[in-house]
Nucleic acid binder design. Structure first.
Length: 119
DNA sequence: CATGTGACCGGTG
DNA sequence: ACACCGGCCACAT
């Protein structure tokens, strides 16, 4: 089992992802930035690896900065992730979300503080 | 303990 | 526009 601090990091990721409202999407970088680790977007994705089994965490609403469904391979089924997004009123073409920036949801705005110390 | 891998991001050429 | 590179943190072997 992971260390407590590690769980804390993961929990932070899950906590933010859980806040993603229906019909909205965000990126790994945005979440990472919100956690205070703007360069650790990879970890966010890694955390999402376990999140795919967590119904509390809508991992299908988390895409990369290009709006690509990079993590669809980790979802059960073939195009489940895409179908889920389309089901929420989005449009996905070739594993890419259309109007990504339009439906983009910034966690920082909800948290109300940018933990990014990257100056 | 060291090395490799990973659902990534941003900058530079 | 595309390709390459460095950085970041945690986990697996």
């Amino acid at each position: 089992m992971p260390k407590p601090e590690t769980l804390n990091f993961f929990q932070k990721v899950y906590a933010v992802a859980r806040q993603i409202p229906y019909g909205k999407v965000t990126s790994y970088g945005a979440i990472a930035k919100c956690l205070g680790a703007p360069r650790s977007a990879r970890m966010v994705g890694y955390a999402m690896n376990g999140a795919s089994e967590m119904e509390d965490v809508p991992a299908h609403r988390v895409l990369n900065r290009n709006g690509l469904l990079t993590g669809k391979h980790h979802f059960p089924g073939t195009h489940l992730m895409q179908q889920l997004l389309e089901s929420e009123g989005h449009t996905v073409v070739e594993d890419k979300l259309q109007d990504f920036d339009k439906h983009f949801w910034d966690p920082v705005e909800m948290i109300g503080f940018d933990a990014s110390t990257d100056q």
